[in-house]
Design a protein around this nucleic acid. Structure first.
Length: 671
DNA sequence: ATAGTGGTAGTTTTT
DNA sequence: CTACCACTAT
């Protein structure tokens, strides 16, 4: 306190939300941002839509806007940032932290699902949801559907009844696209329309089962949040006033349901900024549509529109290729990406005579690049679907190139991990039908029938363990053992999750050894799971995090060594969203694989594949290699694939440098 | 009713 | 390849 004020009395003027304290901004925003970015950063109130092309500094813009809001005196805890993964949120907020300090830690950030989880645990009671609800992942969902299918006697319907996977997909899509199940089945799944009554019945059973057992699937998180916001005026007001500034990243990959959630959250203030690029919308299978971007101004009248069109990521030749690929798309928001950078070599289009030749090319080229001084973690191999890399993975191992694979099968989805977790989940939520079923089936002498019988008993009582103990017959002893173990462990439900897991492990180990020949590998996975659990002191948080944000490394990497060393990245294009590398390889660019034969049926699917390629290409900063093998037999069509992806058809030859790969000893024939 | 075997169809992408 | 289904022997 300086001396002038020593004798004067202080009278505090309270700050109101609408009159932020006079800005004393520490950052020079105009210097750090281009004109377009600056305009988007400087808007404070009201709805805003930012169309941000690939590599146009979209993240930077969001980061600076959050920083500026805080610098303007807005309470950080009133800011809500939606991102596509939780990691993305953490990275952004840590960048904000670097700019303006630790206030950023109080910003709420995460995926729609994780935020919904947070709010539902807090306010869910208002819509009859117990805070201890269990979240079902996709596998759990399918298990539950199958279980109910058995109960309803729909197992003998005949061969053409949809599989659990398809059923789950139908249910989910109807929710996320806001379409009725009838409508969806009759149009998108018309080959199953004969079964519509059964499907509807099963769906009803699925809904009630979840309701009764406090089970919540991924979609329910969003549905229930919408319900919470819609039904209860005071809760809506409360939540909306808590989060007075909302930012949404990757808006092109949100679905209509998520748009409604945003609408509800912003009910009292309309302070929403969404950022996205319609050309990068690649999650239609999850109900996402780039039309969400188009519709945003209608949902929020008075929306201000900003466009970021200057690309800072890629060299000009790479950008030109990307522009050519997307130019052929029939429908898109008008924007033209440009760069001021000069130079850069044209992308390479490499033809290999077989899948293996392609793998060898990639491995060899990567070794060369490393010789040139490019670190491995600045290189990525991207692909359409995760099984496209099987051969490459072998080749990389042979060449001693360490790599990490992102996307594809997940560690938490493996049977043994699910088994172990099921025990803990039963303890946590005794109504969890799905986990009960799983746990029961692992008992010697228990099959589907007995599991179902025991299950009905278990769910109707407060003392489920006694029900297990009362069973006689072949499975009696096994069920008693199970009951004893669960009872003992559940005494200390409040103990750290890692301890609970260790206890359960003692029981489960013999079962594991009995079930799987490769149990040593699986034991290591489970040990890893326990290590992950050590970071938590609450069981429900551990379980929720595991389903909402499963570790995105695939199984083998979890236990792999040299975690600290730099490693090559293998990634599905979907998992590569928002990332960038100095050098990028895109493999399997053969027509029929990418785009896959699958997508030939409808134009929408095909266009999504085009955008997918666009996303892949725009990940590259300096060097881009497009690879395609020829002479690939395609089982689906019965034909041989040898033509490069159709998306490259109209690309001028000058934009690509074509290479033909030949064997060393054959090379002189070509000279 | 369950466990084990053998055959076959169907294979993205993720919260 | 593998997950799922049907069938068979307990």
């Amino acid at each position: 306190m300086d001396s002038l004020n020593q004798h004067s009395k202080l009278y505090i003027l309270k700050r109101s939300h609408h009159t932020p304290r006079p800005a004393r901004l520490s950052l020079n925003y105009a210097e750090a941002l281009n004109a377009q970015q600056l305009a988007a950063v400087e808007i404070v109130d009201g709805p805003a839509l930012v169309i941000a092309g690939a590599g146009s500094g979209k993240t930077r813009t969001l980061v600076y806007r959050v920083a500026r809001l805080i610098e303007l005196g807005i309470d950080p805890s009133a800011i809500l940032l939606f991102t596509f993964t939780r990691k993305a949120a953490q990275e952004m907020l840590s960048r904000v932290g670097q700019l303006i300090g630790p206030a950023s830690e109080r910003v709420t950030g995460g995926t729609f699902h994780s935020v919904a989880n947070l709010l539902l645990r807090r306010y869910g009671r208002a819509i009859g949801l117990d805070p201890g609800f269990t979240i079902l992942d996709r596998g759990d969902t399918e298990d539950l559907i199958n279980l109910l299918r058995g109960q309803l006697g729909l197992n003998e319907t005949g061969k053409r009844f949809p599989r659990k996977h398809t059923l789950a997909e139908m249910f989910s899509k109807s929710v996320n696209t806001l379409r009725s199940l009838d409508d969806l089945v009759l149009t998108q799944y018309s080959h199953f329309s004969d079964y519509l009554p059964e499907i509807t019945k099963l769906h009803q059973a699925y809904l009630t089962a979840k309701q009764q057992r406090q089970l919540v699937d991924y979609d329910d998180l969003l549905v229930k949040l919408r319900e919470l916001l819609g039904k209860d005026e005071s809760v809506r007001h409360n939540i909306s006033q808590t989060y007075r500034y909302i930012l949404v990243d990757e808006y092109q990959d949100t679905n209509p349901l998520q748009a409604q959630v945003i609408r509800g959250l912003a009910a009292t203030h309309d302070n929403v900024m969404v950022v996205g690029d319609d050309s990068q919308s690649i999650y239609a299978f999850r109900g996402a549509t780039f039309r969400n971007i188009m519709d945003f101004p209608r949902l929020f009248p008075g929306t201000k529109l900003y466009k970021l069109e200057e690309n800072y990521r890629s060299t000009r030749p790479i950008l030109e290729l990307a522009n050519h690929i997307i130019a052929a798309a029939p429908e898109k928001y008008s924007k033209t990406l440009f760069t001021r950078s000069q130079g850069g070599s044209p992308p390479t289009l490499a033809q290999a005579v077989s899948e293996h030749a392609q793998s060898r090319f990639v491995a060899q080229k990567i070794l060369e690049l490393r010789e040139e001084g490019i670190p491995l973690d600045e290189i990525a191999v991207l692909f359409r679907s995760s099984f496209h890399t099987f051969d490459l993975e072998l080749e990389l191992s042979r060449c001693n190139i360490p790599f990490i694979k992102r996307g594809g099968f997940k560690f938490v989805e493996t049977a043994h991990v699910k088994d172990l977790l099921a025990y803990v989940r039963v303890i946590h939520n005794p109504h969890d039908t799905v986990s009960w079923n799983r746990v029961l089936l692992l008992v010697e002498g228990v099959g589907p029938k007995r599991a179902r019988d025991v299950l009905t008993g278990v769910l109707d009582t407060d003392r489920p363990f006694d029900v297990l103990k009362a069973v006689t017959g072949r499975a009696g002893q096994g069920l008693r053992d199970l009951a004893t173990m669960l009872e003992r462990v559940s005494q200390g439900e409040t103990r750290p999750p890692a301890e609970l897991l260790a206890d359960v492990m003692d029981y489960y180990l013999p079962i594991l050894k009995d079930h799987y020949d490769d149990y040593p590998k699986r034991i290591r996975d489970l040990e890893h799971l326990t290590i992950m659990a050590e970071r938590y002191d609450r069981l429900d948080e551990f379980l929720a995090d595991l389903t909402l944000e499963p570790p995105d490394e695939s199984v083998m990497d979890v236990t792999g060594q040299d975690r600290d060393d730099e490693r090559l990245v293998l990634s599905t294009i979907h998992s590569a969203k928002g990332l960038e590398w100095r050098c990028v390889f895109i493999i399997w660019l053969v027509d029929g694989r990418f785009p896959s034969t699958y997508s030939f049926l409808t134009e929408e699917d095909l266009e999504e594949e085009r955008r997918l390629l666009y996303v892949a290409v725009t990940r590259a900063k300096q060097k881009l290699f497009l690879c395609y093998p020829i002479n690939i037999y395609d089982k689906i069509t019965g034909s041989v694939l040898s033509k490069p992806s159709r998306f490259l058809d109209h690309v001028p030859p000058t934009l690509l440098e074509s290479w033909t790969l030949v064997e060393e000893d054959e090379a002189y024939h070509w000279r």
